[in-house]
Amino acid sequence: MTEQELQDLERMVAVAVNALEDIKGKDILVLNTSHKTPLFARMIIASGDSTRQVKALANNVAVDLKAAGFELLSSEGENSGEWALVDAGDLVVHVMLPAVRDFYDIEALWGGEKPSFHAGASKPWHAADSQ
């Protein structure tokens, strides 16, 4: 990746993070995925408190990225509002309800190691466990 492409990518990430913060997105995490896949270089994961907020967060990211001159390839999940995705090429943004985020745990898939717990320690709580 050239220096200019890297600067454009960092500007794209900044625009997306600001769009999430504007609508009060929670637990915003930016992952460098360039060493794991050639499909995209960064992934942002954020949570919304309700399906309405998840939809608004994803929409705000899409609108702000377009306004900043970035091309959007696609977006998905706006109908249900449990998990919405915005694909801007080198940047993929996931916005989820906390229970959905906890269940799929894509941070562990893309971000590296899960936290370790000492033997005998109680298992951490996960939304998927409380059925």
Rank of each mutant, 00 (worst) to 15 (best):
A19T: 10
Q7G: 00
F117W: 08
Q131V: 13
V100P: 03
P115L: 12
A108F: 01
R52S: 07
L57H: 00
D105W: 05
R101L: 04
L39H: 09
P98W: 12
E5N: 07
M96N: 00
K123L: 13
M96D: 00
D27F: 00
G120A: 05
G25M: 04
N32T: 03
V93L: 06
I44E: 02
I106W: 07
E82S: 09
G81N: 13
R101Y: 02
E76S: 08
Q53Y: 11
S130C: 11
Q53H: 07
I106K: 06
L97D: 02
L31H: 05
G89N: 10
N59C: 03
W110C: 09
E113S: 13
Q4G: 03
D90E: 12
I45P: 00
A128R: 14
S50I: 08
S116N: 08
A84G: 03
L85E: 01
K24C: 00
V100D: 01
V17L: 01
H35L: 12
L91N: 10
M43Q: 10
G111S: 06
L39F: 15
P115S: 11
L6T: 14
A108P: 03
T51L: 00
T33L: 11
S34R: 15
L29H: 10
V95H: 00
A62E: 15
V92M: 07
T33I: 05
V13T: 14
P115C: 04
V86C: 06
N79P: 00
D90R: 06
L73A: 05
R101V: 03
T2D: 13
S50Q: 12
H35R: 12
L29G: 01
N79T: 09
V86L: 04
R11W: 02
Q7H: 09
L73E: 06
P38K: 08
D102Y: 07
A68L: 08
K26D: 11
Q131L: 14
